[in-house]
Nucleic acid binder design. Structure first.
Ligand SMILES: NC(=O)c1ccc[n+]([C@@H]2O[C@H](COP(=O)([O-])OP(=O)(O)OC[C@H]3O[C@@H](n4cnc5c(N)ncnc54)[C@H](O)[C@@H]3O)[C@@H](O)[C@H]2O)c1
Ligand SMILES: NC(=O)c1ccc[n+]([C@@H]2O[C@H](COP(=O)([O-])OP(=O)(O)OC[C@H]3O[C@@H](n4cnc5c(N)ncnc54)[C@H](O)[C@@H]3O)[C@@H](O)[C@H]2O)c1
Lengths: 248, 248
DNA sequence: CGCGATTTGTGCACATCTTCACAAGCGCCT
DNA sequence: AGGCGCTTGTGAAGATGTGCACAAATCGCG
């Protein structure tokens, strides 16, 4: 047969990488439910995607499905965990144990899904020394020492936006090359460092757009255009001129 | 001139919609810094995107930039807020005030970016009646009454995964058509209801993949292939046969 | 041993998104 | 008034992602 040579990790399409964790979660669920094998259709449903897409995704890993049967659940879990680099539980540093940081520090999903919170950091003297879920909060200035001891590879930033860039710089300085940023700001990092951002407000605003769109479609008919645009005169009088986009 | 007819909200590419909130955040920063106008290059940098992409995105809104000058900051803020439906502060219901829910309930970014937490819900009798950031926690069974009073349009789910689908069903039943789900599970909802999901573990796993990839490239040269694949024999002996994908 | 039922893997066409490159438009300065 | 430099808006090409539809492979069964 083709043998296909899985190529390199670099050849995995980014969109596929983003879905593998979802497949993994679904597979763990299936394994707990006692399934030994699963069809692409079954797994696709559990993961909320199209089955053809799922098959194509899995084929990129060199895929060990069996025609007429499906995929071996345990084997597939192992494959995906390997590809994602989860076989070693990576050490994660969490910086900023405020409102959100406390919740994250106590989150069980860290450990159960391939990670280990290795250390907590903050800059506020009042927080230093506090123990959260068995972990002591260290001053951020201890980051270099602890990063070396624990071989931190991923950093999570849960500080206010104003401090995020400075924290990112410090993380990069101690060798962290993957950052998950909860602060609502753009981080600038050297090439080779990956940043992913989670912003609650952005998610809500995207939902809001769809609410708005649905409402407009309902009230103004299927051809609804940008009705009642704020026009141009509000902020400043300049550039006025031509905003007759109203009503239609 | 072209006049371009902004078409409808429906014509905005989804990728563009997902970036508008980021532009909006950057614009607010620029406004506070005292800028009246901004070039596509400047705004693109502040938002962390390519300037051509930004211009194309803005052109979809009918865009009122001025050649040779740039965009009027205040006007653009207004335009984007209108398109995203933020001119009315939407009412949000938060269900599940555990670890994460507490952090979300106390999050100031809700209010400052176009939303109003209208009510908190939980199922745990121990939580009912508690006041968090000025809001009382209600029993989930009061959802219908309160949803009607407050005209909730968006629901946030911060319950354990096992309860998420039931909560989603209840939200949909009271007319919510936009859901932000923090529970690690797939929600099934009727057509017309939008679900967005935030999963911390998935983000970390994607970062982990890139760490893994970078490490492999470094140690095994640029042509690094899926070295040391777990092989095929672990889960079960079946389907063995042809896993000589090792080394090569 | 062969056949039919089932399910994978993938070629292909289509859709969406990104990026470049540049003409057209605008304001400022002389 | 005219020219110049700057910036937008967009056509076109390429890259990436999606989904259909079907041949190929495998299993179970008679
Ligand atoms: N709370 C939420 O639900 C929520 C949701 C989405 C996003 N966010 C974002 O997450 C971030 C944290 O939110 P929060 O509500 O936990 O804020 P917070 O103010 O409660 O906590 C911030 C913590 O960061 C620490 N800190 C400040 N500067 C630091 C530095 N230089 N180094 C180390 N630690 C530092 C502070 O001492 C504090 O403990 C913010 O950027 C916020 O916008 C929060
Ligand atoms: N804590 C985190 O940092 C974090 C991070 C990412 C994702 N999550 C996810 O967010 C969710 C909540 O996490 P958590 O740590 O806050 O959990 P938690 O157990 O602390 O809180 C869950 C809350 O939901 C309530 N609840 C349970 N069933 C309910 C129902 N049917 N209706 C209404 N309320 C109900 C519980 O009473 C509890 O207060 C989980 O799915 C978790 O996986 C948490």
């Amino acid at each position: 047969m083709s043998q296909h040579r899985p190529g390199g990790l670099s050849e995995l399409p980014e969109a596929t990488v983003a879905r593998l964790p979802e497949y993994l979660r679904a597979l763990h669920g299936l394994a707990e439910a006692g399934h030994d094998t699963v069809s692409s259709e079954g797994l696709a449903t559990a993961a909320g995607v199209n089955s053809a897409k799922l098959r194509k995704d899995l084929s990129h890993l060199g895929s060990y499905g069996t025609r007429g049967v499906g995929y071996d659940v345990a084997l597939l879990i192992e494959q995906i965990e390997y590809v994602l680099g989860l076989t070693q539980h990576r050490a994660v540093a969490l910086v900023g144990v405020g409102n959100l940081g406390h919740a994250l520090a106590g989150y069980a999903g860290f450990a159960t899904r391939g990670f280990r919170i290795a250390a907590l950091f903050d800059a506020d003297p009042a927080q230093i020394g506090e123990v959260i879920s068995g972990l002591t909060v260290h001053h951020i200035r201890e980051l270099p020492r602890i990063a070396a001891e624990e071989s931190i590879s991923i950093g999570v930033i849960a500080t206010p936006a104003g401090a995020a860039q400075a924290v990112a710089d410090q993380l990069v300085a101690v060798g962290v090359t993957g950052i998950l940023n909860f602060a609502p700001c753009v981080l600038s990092v050297p090439e080779g460092v990956d940043v992913r951002k989670v912003d609650l407000a952005i998610e809500l605003q995207i939902l809001s757009f769809h609410e708005h769109r649905k409402a407009a479609a309902g009230s103004a008919g299927p051809t609804a255009s940008l009705t009642a645009l704020p026009g141009g005169m509000a902020g400043n009088g300049a550039s006025g001129g031509n905003q007759e986009a109203v009503g239609s």
